[in-house]
């Protein structure tokens, strides 16, 4: 039986290798396929956290729907071979931003004893099963749930309007 720590290490390595390749591959199709690897790695991390429902949704929505959308658009655009992207100033600035983000997160972690104590709970905690998530989603978070459904509708209408080819007699 795979221990949780081993599973964590495997899935996080998959996710991080995928993420590095997403931002380094020059062709967008390659980047999109590596992004699937990252999504699957994060889904595995959700499973090790006991959030099985979220892992399944991650695979279905991200690795399924969103990636298909990306690949459709890449195919639709039929891009040529990408040019070399030399952009040294932005690269330096972004590395600085990334290191600063890491420091912002790592420094409190290093000096927070209560966080480290909370990291090893004595009693096994409840898992986020589909029933429990639904309980929270339809009672405590009922209003955000409705707002999100409205947001999806608006996004759908907006996407259709933006991607529609304008008729000849109207301006964009």
């Amino acid at each position: 039986m795979l221990s949780e720590r081993t599973a964590f290490l495997i899935f996080s390595v998959i996710a991080l290798i995928g993420a590095v390749n997403v931002i380094t591959r020059r062709h967008p199709v390659h980047a999109a396929l590596w992004l699937v690897g990252t999504f699957l790695g994060v889904a595995g991390l959700f499973l090790t956290l006991g959030a099985g429902l979220l892992g399944a949704i991650q695979v279905m929505v991200y690795a399924g729907a969103i990636m298909v959308l990306f690949l459709f658009v890449i195919l639709l655009l039929n891009l040529d071979a990408p040019p070399d992207e030399g952009l040294s100033f932005a690269r330096g600035a972004s590395l600085l931003a990334a290191v600063a983000t890491l420091a912002l997160i790592a420094l409190p972690l290093a000096r927070a004893p209560e966080l480290r104590a909370a990291a090893t709970p004595e009693s096994p905690v409840a898992d986020a099963s589909a029933g429990q998530v639904a309980n929270v989603l339809f009672t405590r978070y009922a209003l955000p749930f409705e707002v999100v459904s409205l947001l999806l509708l608006i996004a759908m209408v907006g996407a259709i309007h933006l991607a529609r080819r304008p008729r000849r007699d109207e301006t964009v």
């Binding site: 931002i23 952009l87 972004s94 931003a97």
Partner: peptide, 11 residues
Amino acid sequence: LFGLGIVGFVT
């Protein structure tokens, strides 16, 4: 992951 996202978005 977040840092890699920032690097990708800016570069």
